[in-house]
Design a binder for these strands. Structure first.
Lengths: 157, 157
DNA sequence: GCAGACATACTCGGATAGAGTGTGTCCGAGTGGGCTTGG
DNA sequence: CCAAGCCCACTCGGACACACTCTATCCGAGTATGTCTGC
């Protein structure tokens, strides 16, 4: 079970975008320079966040990415699931219905207990991530961070 | 983020072994037939559970696998981590220290908030899985299940 | 001085190659049981 | 009839190919800007 490396990239990118002034944008190239990441691949992953509705992209000069919604309404879960998908890491393939010990269809009307327990664990993980928004992440940073980020990321204080 | 397919296999195998009488064993070939799985690969994965201390293996005729400890002391977490490893799915590579926006070493003495939040979510997942033991899984099955499993798995009622 | 049209440079978006991990398979070492044989 | 020794079949354990996803890269379509020209 392993999350893509780009998960960390996008979490940090989203947190940085949340520190910009309302309406301001940062391009994929700027974000890549800010974290020393491969620009082309980062741009591809940022598209995933756009499709998920977390970011908005504008093309053309002075364009780039910005948050599509207030930072308080974007949770860590939305970002993570935009990158990695929403499917559960445990996929029940109903092996209890196969082989010599196969159970009849009647006995399988109630779902497999093991699958239920794994789903519960996944829900606990999701709830934990959904409990934190980008706004809370920003609030935990020192007050000097946002101006510094704006300066080094976009060049405008 | 995806768990190996063998995770489901080993959860069901462990649950089946827990239904055997104390001291009884089932071979990898029997378990593979019982669930219609590739025997060789299943055997390889069962070794992981032996190394993790969840199962015990005996060689030679009439040998096979059995639980290494009482079913009440084997949690789902131990099985899952034996297959997939204990490392967190989110690996913080400290990109905040790289690139144009690199923070100084002093500012990074306290760990990255994003990494902390991701670690919290992973702990929530682990706690959820650690809360359920194999004994509780067996207890949730209908009373007719254990004899049936013993019969179809090992041939002995 | 002003408005409109144009060329431009910058942006995102999708389609295309390469590496690492999980998946599947095979064969060899070790061991307990069952048979044979001798007493 | 009993016991000891031997052979064997069955078990696990580790070493070897294949496939799929993540990683990385490139080039093309589209657009807001800035400039130039004509009125």
């Amino acid at each position: 079970m392993k999350l893509p490396v780009s998960t960390e990239w996008l979490l940090h990118c989203a947190a940085s975008l949340a520190q910009l002034e309302a309406g301001a944008t940062a391009s994929a190239a700027q974000l890549a320079q800010y974290f020393d990441l491969p620009a082309a691949y980062l741009a591809k992953q940022l598209q995933a966040l756009v499709k998920a509705g977390a970011l908005a992209a504008t093309t053309g000069p002075r364009g780039g990415f910005r948050l599509a919604r207030p930072a308080s309404e974007i949770t860590l879960l939305q970002i993570v699931e935009a990158v990695d998908g929403t499917s559960s890491p445990y996929e029940c393939r109903e092996i209890r219905q196969q082989g010599r010990g196969a159970l009849s269809a009647e006995e399988c009307q109630n779902p497999c207990i093991l699958a239920e327990k794994m789903a519960e664990a996944h829900e606990a993980w999701r709830n934990s991530l959904a409990a934190t928004s980008l706004a809370e992440i920003i609030a935990a940073l020192p007050p000097s961070a946002p101006p510094r980020t704006r300066l080094r990321l976009t060049g405008t204080s």
